[in-house]
Design a protein around this nucleic acid. Sequence first.
RNA 1: GUGGGUGUAGCUCAGCCGGAAGAGCACUGGGUUGUGGCCCCAGAGGUCGCGGGUUCAAGUCCCGUCACUCACCCCA
Length: 429
Amino acid sequence: MKAPRGTMDILPPESERWRRVAERGTALFRAYGYREIILPIMEYTEVFARGIGQGTDIVQKEMFTFADKSGRSLTLRPEATAGVARAFVQHHLDKAGLPVKLYYQGPMFRHERPQAGRYRQFRQLGVELIGSPHPSADAEVIMVCNEFFSMLGIETDLVINSVGDGDCRPAYIDALKEYLAVNKASLCKDCRRRAVENPLRVLDCKVESCARVIAGAPGLEAFLCEVCRQHYHEVAELLQAASIPFRRDDRLVRGLDYYTRTVYEFQDPQAGAQNALAAGGRYDKLVEELGGKPMPATGFSIGMERVMLAGPRLEESEDAGVYVVAIGEAARGRAFLAANRLRSAGIRADLDHMQRSPKAQMREADRGGFACSVIVGEDEMAGGYYTLRDMREGGQERVEESGLVETVRQRLELRQAAPGKRGMGEDGR
RNA sequence: GUGGGUGUAGCUCAGCCGGAAGAGCACUGGGUUGUGGCCCCAGAGGUCGCGGGUUCAAGUCCCGUCACUCACCCCA
């Protein structure tokens, strides 16, 4: 038995690193005023078909779609923004005042061939700022995302572009189609198809012959209408004012139809083919497309798997805890009670369940990274005390029954104040 | 969906020209009547991915298949 292709188990201690990254991310989002929205993991298929776009690869070939027992078509969400927009419309979230600032986290599903940094089930962290058409909204979410990576010590290249809007993009696409048709002979097989179906996608083709064609292609920027041009300009100015470095790239195109104007990626310069750690943009038509009123919005999504591959820097784990060692069968009962008292006081405590020898129990205390151990044996039973051993220094002291919890707590706090000798590596993967 | 690479112990991997399945780490026990790390000793653990073929003999050669992996496509 194996986990399905493209899915994976995340085991301890790796799972702990994941949790900490997610917690730091969501805490950051809250600090910027975003609140969590918890969405279903599946939607009626039309939410994605209409939201993401019929012509996109995601909708055409990457969705996990199935029928429920009444025959209605459901789909495991391939991304979250369409679901957020659907919830926004369903619950009339605009009524409580704009903008609405939301964040989400959780698994997404796409039926693709797995690869480094690409999985069929993958986890995303994302934010949406709904209701503002202004460049400051774009700039804010980009800033949040930028902060996320710098907080984790991950170096990224921010690449931005504007894909125009309903007024100017059609004209550009027509011009591009015309240009590509003329140069059809120089394009690769895939691009000849794309030139007709989805010409924007030709722009980021890596085939050399195509690259030459692309170099001479009309640029999107020249076709932007005045409103879009001004918007793009202001976003860029705000980023500069915030000292966030970025690069403009008018060949950056996104695979989802709902984007308008601003689009961007945070790329990992050291990653392989799947180098987008996060991506996002403005989607001014999506809410309307899903049956709501016209509602400008912008947001991004972070790929957790890719972030973890990039090696986030995390501070050491501080939850050192205490291991209770029982010496002799008679002492096990008292050791069990001592462990539970410590746990009730909020202290991480563990003890042997394998009937191991005292020596083996000590080894367990060492291996588990416990800061100290509490030893219970015949002497302690007779004298009514505990022996508290510091696992780092090696010293021992007697602790009265009544003072157990307090003394252990003091020891652990002392440990936390001092830099620990063991724990998780700074950049371990 | 299309290519390339790799499948041997829990993990990382060695195994030559076909000739008795190995190492390091991890794990368990011991070296101490009640004390961890270092060291020493011992032990447990493998249908060599699976199926077929060639051969006196296959982990090794051939074919098929599955899985993993990297890349294309596309994307977080």
